[in-house]
Design a protein around this nucleic acid. Structure first.
Lengths: 207, 207
DNA sequence: ATATTTACAATCATTCATGTATGTTTGTAT
DNA sequence: ATACAAACATACATGAATGATTGTAAATAT
């Protein structure tokens, strides 16, 4: 029975893959560990060996991916800050392009956004998502603050409102795309959306 | 025990109110009818008398409110169509103002957006939400199509992309507002967002 | 070569939500 | 006055999911 360490790691991965599928199909609360085990070709014992409970499986899935806004800011930091708004724009578009081609990330995002309940007393997985989102907002804020200091932010936008606007649009775009079963071209719509938004945030460009 | 018809109607409302609270606190799947009954001061028997099951309670809650985009379009239809884009803009802002002051609608929306799982084989309640959203998108499309026919749509926007953009931004705005526990001024951010977006959709205004 | 630990499978007990069935009281019609 | 139906409460039966325990074969350490 006992397999080698690589075998164990593989079953762990198989469990996670199966969990992503089952969660995606039935929602998190609608998925039993029994179903996941059966899909992965193991018993619940294997799952309980690798993970404490269902919540920890969810956490493991979440820790595998990065929120799109994280990638945006990483991109900005990586490429310098001479034009913060332009970097946000460019980074956002690149993130969308990457996401549009990565089915695994799409599934995990769909689980987090559409198949996971955010309630008052949150699971630690949901809590992690929220805090990650909040941290990301803070970073966005800083980037826009830089634009403001360089006097490139249009006067009708405040720093906070601009950061919120981008955050809401990006998250809404993703959620709607996944909810509609990818019924519209993500990159196409997203690019127009982001460019229009960021455009209106540039001093002298909006109306 | 048996009360008059008005009494019965009142308990029905009390059940719905309790359900909104419990759903909001624990999520839909995390809420048992027992909890709801206890909060409402009745037993599960009363709930099963008025509703078939938990899904029907959810449906009843949903049927009480209108999606914000519905209100937007109703506003547009009600006020004529001479400037479709302007009407979308105005209507959206008004909807946000109304929502910002109606706590009950906020709770129900939060339940639908954050406390309800959208999976592959959907509950009828989730299905109703999705179809309502889709219908609303169709109406938005028609309004923007009118703008396009009047040659007032900026050339960089297609009709579909514009409708999607507005839909995503509005839904994202609401979701983020509710998820963040109303941590930012909804109307303020929303107004800038919508005005910027619609502004960029006006021929000769965007860049 | 043996002991020990790993990586599971199999079984079990418990909880919990649901649905149903039945009982009970009180309006309401006749 | 009586019969019936509405509006619940109470009790029960069921199934599903969970967490815990135990068993066990193979890998690894000694």
């Amino acid at each position: 029975m006992r397999r080698t360490k690589e075998d164990a790691a593989r079953t762990r991965e198989e469990v996670l893959t199966a969990a992503a599928e089952i969660f995606y199909e039935n929602g998190v609360s609608g998925s039993s560990l029994e179903k996941i085990a059966k899909r992965a070709g193991v018993t619940r014992g294997a799952i309980y060996w690798h993970f404490k409970d269902k919540a920890e499986v969810l956490t493991a899935l979440h820790s595998e991916i990065r929120l799109p806004q994280e990638a945006i800011v990483d991109y900005a930091i990586e490429h310098g800050h001479d034009d913060p708004l332009g970097l946000i724009e460019q980074g956002a578009v690149e993130v969308l392009q990457i996401l549009a081609e990565d089915e695994h990330q799409q599934r995990v995002f769909a689980i987090m956004i559409l198949g996971c309940e955010f309630t008052e007393h949150l699971t630690d997985a949901a809590q992690r998502i929220i805090t990650a989102n909040d941290e990301m907002f803070g970073k966005l804020q800083k980037l826009i603050e830089m634009a403001h200091e360089r006097n490139t932010l249009a006067p009708l936008w405040t720093v906070d409102a601009a950061a919120r606007g981008i955050q809401c649009s990006m998250n809404g775009l993703l959620a709607e795309w996944l909810r509609s079963d990818k019924s519209f071209p993500l990159v196409d719509v997203g690019e127009r959306l982001i460019r229009s938004l960021v455009g209106s945030m540039r001093r002298g460009e909006g109306r």
